[in-house]
Nucleic acid binder design. Structure first.
Length: 748
DNA sequence: GAGTTTGAAACT
DNA sequence: CAGTTTCAAACTC
């Protein structure tokens, strides 16, 4: 990454050093002059340009992306890497030179592997420039860097770089320490070429970079990945062909190079860099990269094809259980199945707003971790695409999305107790419901869904909206319409991607939460002092509340009811009899039971919390930190088994994220993210959840600062003032959804 | 399957 | 911000 300027600078420095004056000064100073070091790359937080919005159209993204990831076949070109601003090394020479730098202030990571004998060389750079434009005015920088360009002949599977900002609270990496590692490795042995290729392809996961400022968005991802269980270091090391290493040892004994390698390994171990399963980063990135409706590379190999699904945030649902075991497993899987990434589910992200940051859930991320290698995609996102096949067209993709829920993987995950995105869980629920509902006229659609696909998909029947309005369930869910849809004049197709994105953007400008999950759920209803949630009995609530006048909130016309949640004070409904909970907080009526009274004194609201819990069948899922479904992902499943299950079609846009930890789930900071998606990203996956998403984040608190009657949600400008470190009090939140996208404006 | 009802979304 | 219109899902027959 030497830039001409740098070169000039260095040359000028050299002259300066050679000057008599300099020599004189040196003679006076006890400090020994040192030859100036080039700073190959210095990524200063300040230097990071604001990140573009996540929702940038894929085209744009791809364009930008190419910059970062480089795969060149030119061995001769020295690769520079420096994390600390120092020129680390360049060597073409035989031997292995591994340098690792920890530079707290620098967020740069460049990794290069030089394989002289191999054509393949991969350099990963994490420039500040990584950007996604979501187009939203406020978007914070959400660094997303993904490069999947592989020019080299060798198999370049995927590379992803994730800027990692260390969260002090997080122990993933040493506190406050950013790790930038530069590896230059030359492989002397030609015979090992294949091995290196493998290594390279796998390494992306291992690479982690911190970006002090902008990359916070990745933090969550990384942190999540950092969960105990697997270590990156070991993984990394393991990646290296053991034979080669041994040979190296033999050859380089005493050279110090070996020591360096070991040192690096130790560092990784010490830093507990873990959970990077091969492909995970890539997935993450992919997810992020994929803006809603944007095409995501399902795999590097396959990148190039477009996914049907809109990945807004792609946060995707990830498995909730991120427990180490799962991570370990995933890593194992990855290793065992190098080629598994073919079917990735990229999802998430968007929503996210995202979908799009969404990284999904970064659940997506999680999911990805697990799924990537396994080769199975998790249904996290609506967008999950199983399709590796290039042929997968829109429909295929769409179908794949639908199917995602039904995939074996999911099933397995469920068995394992892994929580998939809520989608998945909901899907299950729906599935059950469907079972009961066979009679419903509805029939084909439902049956169809059931049959195949796990109901995640939506099929619309739009006549006039061109499927470009929220009336359209597909659009609202962030997915492209597919064949099963009965829509007319549909523009919600990949071929109209630009239109879709523009429309989406417009809608979001009007209502940033338009594509966010409508139901916000928390696993733990524990009320916080001073929090409105106290009055909110249910663990989940419709973010905006309903406005039912005639249905008494007992029919699916009511979004609250449809979403399987009780009404809240946010609702403007009349004659509320919502079986899941009255808006006044009255106890939930047993299904089919009548609520006692309509608007009870708010003081009584607390009492019902317990009852609401009943509705939360997903709790177990919530336990998992996982995923957040991004908007798109959402999936249509009701949170709970609705009493009316018959016909239950998944609720349109209810995405509840249970405790699922979405990508953004973890937020220690507690700041809300609706408005600032980036923050969400920053948040740790596991424990943190944006307040909005949290249960405690009652609409009242956040979104609904507006008048109770206001239908539209204004973007929360406010930060949900909770203190960043705010006590989470053990509450798991779930964010159901993440705002479609992260805000684009840089934090500072 | 057609028609009606309903309430969210969009518009004014 | 409130009122009205548009829209498509939900529902009924």
């Amino acid at each position: 990454m030497d830039t001409p300027e740098k070169t000039l600078t260095s040359s000028s420095l050299s002259k300066f050093e050679d000057s008599p004056v300099f020599n004189y000064i040196n003679s006076l100073s006890p400090i020994k002059p040192v030859k100036s070091v080039h700073v190959t790359q210095t990524f200063n937080p300040l230097s990071f340009a604001s990140l573009p919005s996540i929702f940038t159209s894929p085209h744009v993204s791809s364009h930008k992306e190419s910059r970062f990831l480089k795969c060149s076949t030119d061995p001769s070109k020295p690769e520079l890497s420096s994390a600390d601003g120092t020129k680390v090394s360049t060597n073409e020479e035989a031997g292995v030179n591994v340098q690792e730098i920890f530079d707290p202030g620098v967020s740069l990571g460049e990794v290069s592997f030089q394989l002289p004998n191999q054509q393949s060389r991969i350099a990963i750079e994490l420039p500040q420039t990584l950007k996604y434009d979501c187009g939203s005015p406020n978007c914070d920088p959400t660094p997303c860097v993904i490069e999947t360009n592989c020019v080299s002949e060798s198999t370049c599977t995927s590379l992803a770089i994730v800027p990692f900002v260390q969260d002090a609270s997080q122990k993933g990496f040493s506190d406050g320490v950013e790790v930038a590692a530069t590896f230059q490795i030359e492989q002397k042995r030609e015979t090992t070429g294949s091995e290196w290729e493998c290594l390279i392809s796998d390494t992306p996961d291992l690479l982690i970079f911190n970006s002090p400022n902008g990359s916070e968005a990745f933090r969550g991802v990384i942190q999540k990945s950092l969960e105990p269980g697997t270590r990156c270091g070991p993984t990394l090391i393991s990646q290296f062909p053991q034979d080669d290493i041994n040979e190296y040892k033999d050859q380089n004994e005493g050279t110090g190079e070996l020591d360096e390698i070991n040192h690096v390994n130790e560092i990784f171990k010490d830093n507990n860099v873990t959970n990077f399963v091969p492909g995970s980063l890539t997935d993450y990135i992919d997810t992020r990269m994929s803006a809603p409706y944007s095409m995501k590379p399902s795999s590097i190999l396959h990148h190039g094809f477009r996914r049907r699904c809109l990945d807004f945030e792609m946060l995707a649902s990830r498995k909730k259980s991120l427990d180490g075991s799962s991570n370990t497993n995933s890593s194992v899987e990855n290793k065992s199945e190098p080629g598994g990434d073919s079917s990735r589910c990229i999802v998430p992200g968007i929503g996210l707003h995202l979908n799009a940051l969404a990284i999904a859930s970064r659940d997506n991320t999680n999911t990805k971790f697990e799924t990537l290698l396994s080769g199975t995609q998790k249904p996290i996102l609506p967008c999950s695409t199983t399709s590796n096949s290039p042929t997968a067209g829109q429909e295929t993709a769409h179908e794949s999305l639908l199917a995602s829920g039904s995939t074996e993987r999911e099933t397995d995950d469920v068995k394992n107790g892994v929580q998939l995105a809520e989608d998945a869980s909901q899907a299950s629920t729906n599935f059950v419901n469907e079972e009961f509902n066979q009679n419903s006229p509805k029939k084909k659609r439902r049956r169809f869904e059931r049959a195949g696909e796990s109901e995640a998909c939506k099929r619309c029947n739009c006549k006039k909206s061109k499927c470009l309005k929220l009336y359209c369930e597909c659009f609202a869910a962030g997915v492209y319409c597919i064949e099963p849809c009965s829509c007319q004049d549909c523009f919600n197709k990949p071929i109209h991607e630009d239109t879709v994105l523009a429309t989406r953007k417009q809608i979001e400008s009007r209502n940033p939460l338009a594509f966010a999950p409508k139901v916000i759920r928390t696993s733990d209803p524990i009320p916080e002092v001073g929090d409105d949630s106290i009055t909110t009995p249910a663990s989940a609530r419709h973010k905006r509340g309903c406005n039912c006048k005639k249905s008494n909130c007992l029919k699916k016309y009511c979004e609250c009811f449809q979403g399987g949640v009780g009404c809240s004070i946010n609702c403007r409904c009349e004659g509320c009899k919502n079986a899941f909970g009255l808006k006044n907080g009255s106890p939930i009526v047993e299904a089919g039971g009548e609520p006692e009274g309509e608007e009870t004194d708010p003081s009584d609201m607390n009492a019902t919390n317990t009852n609401f819990e009943k509705t939360d069948i997903l709790n177990t899922e919530e336990q998992n930190p996982a995923a957040l479904p991004t908007t798109p992902v959402q999936l249509c499943r009701p949170l709970v088994q609705l009493p009316f299950s018959s016909k239950s079609k998944p609720p349109r846009s209810f995405i509840t994220i249970g405790s699922s930890s979405g990508l953004y789930t973890g937020n220690k900071y507690g700041k809300p993210n609706i408005i600032r998606p980036q923050r969400i990203i920053e948040k740790r996956f596991q424990d943190e959840t944006p307040e909005i998403l949290r249960g405690n984040f009652s609409p009242e608190n956040g979104i609904k600062t507006l008048s109770p009657n206001s239908k539209r949600i204004s973007p929360p400008q406010c930060e949900f003032g909770s203190t960043p470190g705010g006590a989470r009090s053990g509450r798991k939140l779930i964010l159901q959804s993440i705002p479609s996208f992260p805000s684009l404006t840089p934090k500072h």
